[in-house]
Write a protein that binds this DNA or RNA. Structure first.
Length: 593
DNA sequence: CGTGATGACG
C-alpha cells in the first residue's frame, strides 16, 4: 500500500495500457484493441515509440495493416525499431510492396537499418528470387553477414524459393554458425527432399535441439521412410507437440490410420494442430464418422477451430465428398466468428463445388469482397465440372474485364468447360492463346484436357498423335481418356496401339481391361476379348465392380453395380427407377452399355 | 529453424 502511494498517479494508466497491449500480442481481439487504442489516444500516449510499436504489431495480428500504418504515421521521429515493426506488419499481411516502401522511407529519413530489418524484408519477399538476391547483395555491402541473424534468414528465403545451392553457399561461407543456422540448413535440405544430405548435416551438428530432430522426422516421413522416422522418434531426448504431430501426420499421409490414432491418443499435450491433422486424416480417407466424432471430442476438450484447421479439414472434405462435415466446419467457423479470409472462402467454394452444392459455392463466391486468382479459378472450374461450360467461359470473360491475369490453373478450367460444351475449336484457341498471350507452358493437365476433347469429338488419330508428339511423357489419365474415346467411337485400331502403354502404367487397373474387352466385343474380336477378360481375372479382381460412395448423416454408404448388399437396397432401387423415369422425361438419354 | 493450410487431366 505504501509503495503504491509513492508512485505518481499518472504513471499507472500508462503501465496498465502497456500491460493490456502485451496481453493482446497472443490473440487478435480487435474490439479490445480498439478500446485500448482510444484510451491511448485520449492520454496522448500514441507518440510513445514503445506503445506505438505494440499497437502496430497488434493491428497487424488483427489483419489490419492499414491501421498499423496509421499508428506509425502519428509518431514524429520513428526509431529503427518502429520501422522494423511496420515492415514486419506488412510482411505478415502479405503486402511486400508496402514493406519495401517502408524500407525506402527508413533510408530517406536516415534511420539506419539493423539486423532485424533485413530478415523481415526477406520474409516479405519469400517468393521473389530476384528481390532476395537484391537484398543479399545489399547486406553484403553493409557487412551484415558477419553475424548469424541475416544469413540465417537468407538460407531460409533461398530454400523456400527453391534455390538450395544458394542457401548452401550462404551456409558454407558463414564465419560463425549458431543452432538456428544448422537447423535452417537441415530444414532446407528436407524441403528439397534431400533427406540423406539432411541427415549428413544433422550428424555433423555440434549440438541439437528438438527442432533439429523434428526436421529430420519430417524429412524421413516425406520420403516414406516411416520406420527410420519412428526409430529417430523413439531415440530423441525430448519430444514436444510438434514431434508427436509430425509422426501423426506422417502416418496419416501413409494411410496408416491405426498407427496415427495410437500416437495421437498417446500424446501428452495436444493443441489444435494435431487435432486438425487427425480429423483431416480421417476426412481425407472418407471416414466421416471418425472425423466428426473427433470434432466433438476436440470441442469437448475446449479447443476451438482456427483458420488453419478450417482450411485443412475443408480441403479433406472436398477430396472425399464429405458435404456434411464440410457444412459443419462452415457453421462452426461462422459461430466462432472466424475471419472469413480469402483462403477459407476459397476452401469453402471448392468444398461445396466438389461435394455437389454448386449453388452454395456460387453464393460464397459472389459474396466475397476480395476474390483472388484462386477464387476465380475454383469457380471457373466448378461451373465447368457441373456441366455449365458456357457459364464458365462467361465467368472467364468477366475475369478478364476485371483485369485478373489468368494462370495455368485457369486454362485447365477453361479447357474442361470446352469439353462440356464440345467446343473443339475454342479449346484449340485457348491452348494456343495461353502460350502466346500469357507465356504459360502447357502442363500434362492441359494436354490431358485437349486430348480428351479431341477424343470425344471423334478425332482419335489427332488425339493419339498429340499424345505421342507432346514434349511430356503421357500418363495413365491421357491413355485412359483416349481408350475411352476409342470405346465410344468403336475404334479398335488405335485402342490396340495404346493398350500396352496403358497396362504398363496401370497394370492392376481392372477398369482399363474392362474397357478393352468391351471394345473387342463391339468389334466382334472375341479372341482379343477373351485375352482381356483373362488379364482382368489375373489382376484387379477386387476392383471389378464399379461402386460409389455416398455420405448421409455421417455414415458412408457404398453401392455397387448389381449389388443388393445394402440393407435398404429395395428402397434405393425403387427411388433410382423413379429418378430414371424423371430424367428421361427431361430429355436425358442414358448411356447404352 | 520444426507440425495442420485454398485451385488442375479419366
Amino acid at each position: 500500500m505504501s509503495g503504491n502511494l509513492q508512485q505518481p498517479q499518472f504513471a499507472s494508466p500508462s503501465r496498465l495500457l502497456d500491460q493490456n497491449l502485451s496481453n493482446l500480442h497472443k490473440c487478435s481481439d480487435t474490439r479490445r484493441l480498439l478500446q485500448i487504442h482510444s484510451q491511448i489516444f485520449r492520454l496522448h500516449l500514441h507518440t510513445n515509440p514503445f506503445i506505438a510499436s505494440k499497437l502496430i504489431a497488434s493491428y497487424s495480428l488483427c489483419l489490419l495493416p492499414s491501421s498499423s500504418a496509421a499508428v506509425f504515421n502519428l509518431v514524429p521521429d520513428p526509431t529503427s525499431h518502429l520501422f522494423n515493426t511496420l515492415i514486419r506488419a506488412f510482411a505478415q499481411n502479405s503486402l511486400p510492396s508496402l514493406s519495401f516502401n517502408t524500407f525506402f522511407r527508413m533510408q530517406l529519413s536516415s534511420v539506419k537499418a539493423d539486423s532485424f530489418t533485413y530478415p523481415f524484408l526477406l520474409k516479405s519477399f519469400s517468393s521473389s528470387l530476384h528481390t532476395i538476391e537484391l537484398i543479399h547483395a545489399h547486406v553484403i555491402k553493409l557487412g551484415f553477414l558477419s553475424d548469424t541473424f541475416v544469413p540465417n534468414s537468407l538460407i531460409d528465403s533461398y530454400s523456400k524459393s527453391g534455390e538450395n545451392d544458394a542457401a548452401c553457399k550462404v551456409f558454407d561461407e558463414m564465419p560463425v554458425r549458431d543452432l538456428v543456422s544448422w537447423n535452417s540448413m537441415v530444414a532446407a535440405l528436407v524441403r528439397a527432399g534431400e533427406v540423406w544430405d539432411a541427415r549428413g548435416v544433422f550428424d555433423q551438428m555440434p549440438e541439437r535441439d528438438t527442432v533439429s530432430w523434428n526436421s529430420m522426422l519430417d524429412g524421413y516421413m516425406k520420403v516414406g521412410e516411416v520406420d527410420a522416422a519412428f526409430d529417430l522418434f523413439s531415440r530423441m531426448p525430448v519430444r514436444n507437440v510438434v514431434s508427436w504431430s509430425t509422426m501423426v501426420s506422417g502416418y496419416c499421409n501413409k494411410g496408416d490410420m491405426e498407427m496415427a490414432r495410437m500416437l495421437f491418443d498417446k500424446m501428452p499435450v495436444k493443441n489444435v494442430v494435431p487435432w486438425t491433422i487427425m480429423i483431416s486424416g480421417y476426412a481425407g480417407k472418407g471416414l466421416a464418422k471418425e472425423a466428426s466424432s473427433l470434432m466433438d471430442q476436440m470441442e469437448e476438450a475446449g479447443l476451438e477451430l482456427d483458420s488453419g484447421a478450417a482450411v485443412s479439414i475443408l480441403t479433406a472434405c472436398a477430396h472425399s465428398d464429405l458435404l456434411g462435415l464440410g457444412k459443419r466446419i462452415h457453421h462452426t467457423a461462422k459461430r466462432r466468428k472466424l475471419m472469413f479470409t480469402t483462403q477459407i472462402s476459397n476452401a469453402l467454394i471448392d468444398m461445396y463445388s466438389k461435394c455437389g452444392d454448386l449453388d452454395e459455392a456460387w453464393n460464397i463466391f459472389e459474396r466475397m469482397e476480395d476474390k483472388d486468382l484462386v477464387s476465380w479459378n475454383s469457380m471457373v472450374h466448378a461451373l465447368a465440372m457441373h456441366g455449365y461450360g458456357k457459364k464458365s467461359l462467361e465467368l472467364f470473360a468477366r475475369m478478364e474485364e476485371e483485369g485478373i491475369i489468368p494462370d495455368s490453373f485457369t486454362f485447365v478450367g477453361l479447357l474442361c468447360a470446352c469439353t462440356q460444351v464440345g467446343l473443339i475449336k475454342q479449346a484449340r484457341r485457348y491452348f494456343i492463346s495461353m502460350q502466346k498471350d500469357y507465356e504459360i507452358v502447357p502442363r500434362i493437365e492441359h494436354y490431358g484436357c485437349l486430348i480428351d476433347i479431341l477424343g470425344r469429338g471423334g478425332l482419335l488419330m489427332e488425339a493419339y498423335n498429340l499424345a505421342k508428339s507432346m514434349p511430356l511423357e503421357p500418363n495413365a489419365i491421357i491413355w485412359g481418356s483416349i481408350l475411352n474415346a476409342c470405346r465410344f467411337h468403336n475404334n479398335v485400331g488405335i485402342a490396340e496401339k495404346i493398350i500396352d502403354e496403358l497396362v504398363s502404367l496401370e497394370p492392376s487397373d481392372a477398369g482399363n481391361f474392362e474397357i478393352i474387352s468391351k471394345i473387342y466385343a463391339a468389334a466382334g474380336k472375341w479372341d482379343g476379348m477373351a485375352k482381356a477378360r483373362l488379364k482382368m481375372k489375373d489382376f484387379g479382381r477386387h476392383k471389378l465392380v464399379g461402386s460409389g460412395f455416398i455420405e448421409l448423416n455421417d455414415n458412408v454408404h457404398e453401392l455397387a453395380l448389381e449389388d443388393r448388399m445394402h440393407p435398404q437396397a429395395d428402397r434405393i432401387l425403387r427411388m433410382l427407377n423413379r429418378l430414371g423415369k424423371y430424367v428421361k422425361k427431361l430429355g436425358y438419354a442414358a448411356e447404352v452399355r
